[in-house]
Amino acid sequence: MDDKPDQDLVAEVLGGNTESFGELAARHRPRIERLCKRFFSDGEMARDIAQESLIRAYTALGTYRAEMPFRGWLRAIVVNLCYDELRRRRRRPEELVGDFSAPEVQWMQLVNHATPEEIVGESEERREAHDLAHRLLDTLKPEDRMVMVLKESEELSISEIAATLGWSEAKVKIRAFRARQALRKQAERIFAAGRSREQ
């Protein structure tokens, strides 16, 4: 069963064999959870959204078209759920620049010249980078955060992001530009706060 293509498993589910969805879920859950964790530092929330994504996928399976990759279709569901959650819990940036842990301060000294994009990209390698990346990403508007995570962490192209979010490529490019500008501005604030804390 492991060797069956996703499309065959989908056809089996639609044909009445609901157990085949368990195989689809097991196959894609790790990737879904990893994507959710790129948007939310709270592991429990990421798992909840991953689970909700699988439920949504199951109930919407009839809308899946076999000519498109199942993985891309599923990613669109996950991304849209994350986007909805980001819009629900949107906070003001000023509330997010608070005290830093000693490891964060130490790491900030090392990356003082790194770009915010590099910090986001590095976030899977180091815990301090992960925390700082989420702190930076938390300051972005939900639309900008979606584009930044999909572009820098998921390494999707502009056209892939546009297809996933249902936006025009022009909108994605504008959002990517705005996200980079906002991240740089926020990174400067964070680094300045870290430096003043040391003095």
Rank of each mutant, 00 (worst) to 15 (best):
R38H: 13
L35F: 11
A102D: 14
P30M: 01
M148P: 00
N80S: 09
D48Q: 12
E44I: 13
E124L: 13
K171M: 06
G72C: 12
S157K: 06
L86C: 07
M1N: 11
K185Y: 06
L54Q: 06
M1W: 10
M45W: 10
K171Q: 10
K37C: 12
F40V: 04
E155A: 14
L137V: 04
R175W: 00
H113N: 15
E160V: 03
K4A: 15
E104Q: 10
T164G: 05
G22K: 07
H28T: 09
H134D: 04
R87W: 06
Q186D: 15
S157T: 11
F39D: 03
L150W: 02
T115F: 09
A176W: 00
L156S: 12
F100M: 11
S157R: 06
G121F: 03
A50S: 10
A26M: 08
L183I: 00
G194V: 08
P30A: 02
D48Y: 07
D138K: 11
V79P: 07
K171I: 03
L24V: 03
V97N: 06
V97L: 14
V172E: 00
R180T: 00
K173Q: 02
S123Q: 01
D84N: 14
R34T: 14
F177K: 00
M148W: 00
D48M: 08
L86N: 05
K151Q: 10
G43R: 15
E188Q: 13
G194K: 03
T59P: 03
Y83G: 06
A57M: 05
R89Q: 13
L74M: 07
A187L: 15
E118Q: 15
V149D: 02
G121T: 05
K37L: 15
Y58A: 05
E124Q: 14
R38L: 10
D99C: 07
